[in-house]
Amino acid sequence: MRRTRPDTSLTADTDDGFRPAAPPAWTRWLPFVYVAFVLLLEAAQQEEWAVSLFLVALPAIAAYAYGPAVVAALTVLAILLEGFLAAVSHHLGETHHVTADIATAVVGILATALAAHRRSQERHLVHANSVAEALMRALLRPVPHQVGNVLAAGLYRPSEAGTMVGGDLFDIRTTRTGERAIIGDVRGKGLPAVRTVAAVPGTFREADYEAQDLPAIAARLERGLVREAEEIRDPELFATAVLIEYDSLAHRVTVTNHGHVEPVLISRGEVRTLEGPPALPLGLGHLAAADRPVPCSHRFTRGDVLLLVTDGLVEARDTGGDFYPLVERLRHRFEGRPAPGPADVVDFLNTDLPRHTPHLHDDVAMLAIAPHGHT
């Protein structure tokens, strides 16, 4: 099984890990099509008028898709073609043709500078996105194929194309009491959410080794978000989350849900949501201080897959405005069939979601786990 890598508009390269997406093919062909059009127009025109003046625009057209060297070369080509067409019509020395050559040279110089600036901005953008992805990969560490007694697979798809910056989070750890995982969604998205995304997994990892149960971890996360809200002066800061703990000896998984999307269990050819007593999102616990989250336990044996997702998945809309039918799609794919692995489930959703929603409007994260080892 493999860990699915999220799609971005940046692809692998050998320099700094990424390269910008290539411009559309038609923009690369446009300068040459434009030259052919001017030459055909020159050959077809019945009256003597300066068709070659259209070539003044050639460097600017080339600057959209090409670098400074190609733009400079096309500028020279445009000036030579203007001179050739003027010579053919015996008007080479006329003032307006000389003026056209000068104008083409000026436009070419500016277009070459523009192309150089565009390339510089592209390099800067690639570097910025590389740093952003490195940051998010440090915060949302890659999900190993196996964590303790579970197999796992994870996926993160940011809503902002070409970046890895977003407000969703997940993590999975092995502890003395079993494997524990979290998936969450902080209020907001993009850069404003990054600070909170950094705080929540850090607190989870720290509490993981000390807290005796999931409510104790939730209490630590609650206090951490309250402090974060005070520091950034955002009284409405919160994060929805699901916390889980797997006991391989008891073959059970314990779940606490803090205002988040319900987990989905694929078990024995059936697909169902794991509903339980809801709790307030993390950071808003002070609104119901007397209530503690109630853990719910469910049987979880080899062949089962537990899927945790964020609301960016279930609230993704198609062109008709309908939400992505997560449970129905999972039933259509896996119900009545041999037990899938975590990577099978994540890979299916990674390919099926774009068919339903071409453009995401919210971050999407998912984490799937399955028991491994003794049964």
Rank of each mutant, 00 (worst) to 15 (best):
residue 10 L to G: 00
residue 10 L to D: 07
residue 10 L to H: 14
residue 12 A to V: 12
residue 15 D to A: 05
residue 16 D to N: 04
residue 18 F to H: 04
residue 18 F to T: 01
residue 19 R to V: 02
residue 20 P to E: 03
residue 20 P to D: 01
residue 23 P to T: 15
residue 23 P to I: 07
residue 24 P to V: 13
residue 25 A to E: 15
residue 26 W to R: 15
residue 26 W to H: 15
residue 30 L to D: 04
residue 36 A to M: 14
residue 37 F to G: 13
residue 38 V to C: 13
residue 41 L to V: 15
residue 41 L to T: 14
residue 41 L to Y: 08
residue 42 E to L: 12
residue 44 A to Q: 08
residue 45 Q to R: 15
residue 48 E to F: 13
residue 48 E to H: 06
residue 48 E to P: 06
residue 51 V to D: 03
residue 52 S to R: 01
residue 53 L to S: 00
residue 53 L to W: 13
residue 54 F to R: 12
residue 55 L to C: 03
residue 56 V to H: 09
residue 58 L to A: 02
residue 61 I to L: 10
residue 61 I to F: 09
residue 62 A to F: 04
residue 62 A to H: 03
residue 64 Y to K: 01
residue 67 G to A: 04
residue 67 G to Y: 08
residue 68 P to K: 10
residue 69 A to H: 04
residue 73 A to N: 06
residue 75 T to W: 10
residue 75 T to F: 14
residue 75 T to Q: 10
residue 75 T to L: 04
residue 77 L to E: 01
residue 78 A to K: 06
residue 78 A to T: 12
residue 79 I to K: 11
residue 81 L to M: 11
residue 81 L to W: 11
residue 82 E to Y: 14
residue 82 E to G: 05
residue 82 E to K: 10
residue 82 E to A: 02
residue 83 G to L: 01
residue 84 F to Q: 06
residue 84 F to E: 03
residue 85 L to M: 13
residue 87 A to Y: 00
residue 87 A to G: 06
residue 87 A to F: 01
residue 87 A to R: 07
residue 88 V to A: 10
residue 88 V to M: 09
residue 88 V to W: 08
residue 89 S to V: 14
residue 91 H to P: 08
residue 91 H to L: 07
residue 93 G to R: 02
residue 93 G to Q: 09
residue 94 E to N: 03
residue 95 T to H: 12
residue 96 H to I: 08
residue 98 V to R: 11
residue 99 T to I: 08
residue 100 A to R: 04
